[in-house]
Amino acid sequence: MPRVLIVEDHPRMAQAVAAALQAQGMACDTVATLGHAAVFLETARYDVLILDRGLPDGDGLSLLAQLRALRQSIPCMILTARDALGDRVSGLETGADDYLAKPFEMAEMVARVKALMRRNQPWLPDESSFADLKVSAQASTLFVGAASITLSPSELQIILTLMRHEGKVVRRAALESAAWGAFSEITPKALDVAIHRLRGKLGVLQSGVSIINTKGVGYALAVLPNT
């Protein structure tokens, strides 16, 4: 399922954009500040970033500039009331892939987001790996050698997030956000149940990797001794 991060400080606008994209089968997280956006981008993988400019803690272009300096090529659409030619030029030169001025039609916004996803799909990495594990995001499949097993959407996002942190502990909140979205209503044990299922699948595949728990903090991948 495609995932979109919406950085917009007007709640009604954020909710309307999210609803329009969710109706097209996309998962959306919404945040109102640059600080929160940076945290979400560190803990989850997004297919598109929708970014307002006039935010409580600064201009959205400052976040985009940081992402591009780090060579992060997530497709970015600027949604803003700043529609002067100079504003549009500065947004595109900073690294935005599209620039849509408010007010706008939701149908056009959705079409542009879909176009960004299609345009950038070829370079999005499909496979991730850690030790003897390999994951195909497109196929939602976990591999150990020639053996494979299918992952649920939440399991896929959890294992990909753990892989990206390369053995470092990932906090529970970050894993829950990656698997179900920041504002999803899930039970306190949902993450533990998903981790239990993933451990079972690692066992079926006879992987040399385990998922370890740091009590009260989160989870990490670890290579088992003598493997």
Rank of each mutant, 00 (worst) to 15 (best):
Q24D: 15
Q24H: 14
M26V: 10
M26H: 14
A27I: 08
A27Y: 01
D29W: 00
L34K: 00
L34G: 09
A37Y: 00
A38G: 12
V39K: 09
V39Q: 09
F40L: 12
T43A: 15
R45Y: 09
D47K: 00
L49E: 08
L49Y: 08
L49C: 09
D52Y: 07
D52I: 11
R53K: 13
D57P: 07
D59R: 08
S62Q: 12
S62V: 12
A65K: 13
A69C: 06
A69W: 04
L70N: 11
S73N: 15
P75I: 01
P75N: 02
P75T: 02
M77F: 11
L79D: 07
T80V: 07
A81P: 02
R82G: 10
D83M: 09
A84G: 15
L85S: 08
L85K: 09
S90V: 10
G91S: 05
E93T: 13
T94H: 09
A96W: 04
A96K: 02
D97Q: 00
A101V: 15
P103N: 09
E105C: 06
M106S: 12
M106Q: 13
M106D: 09
A107Q: 14
E108N: 01
E108C: 00
A111K: 06
R112F: 03
K114T: 12
A115H: 11
L116I: 10
M117K: 01
R119H: 12
Q121R: 14
P122I: 11
E127M: 14
E127S: 13
K134H: 03
V135P: 01
A139L: 15
S140N: 11
T141D: 01
L142D: 01
F143D: 00
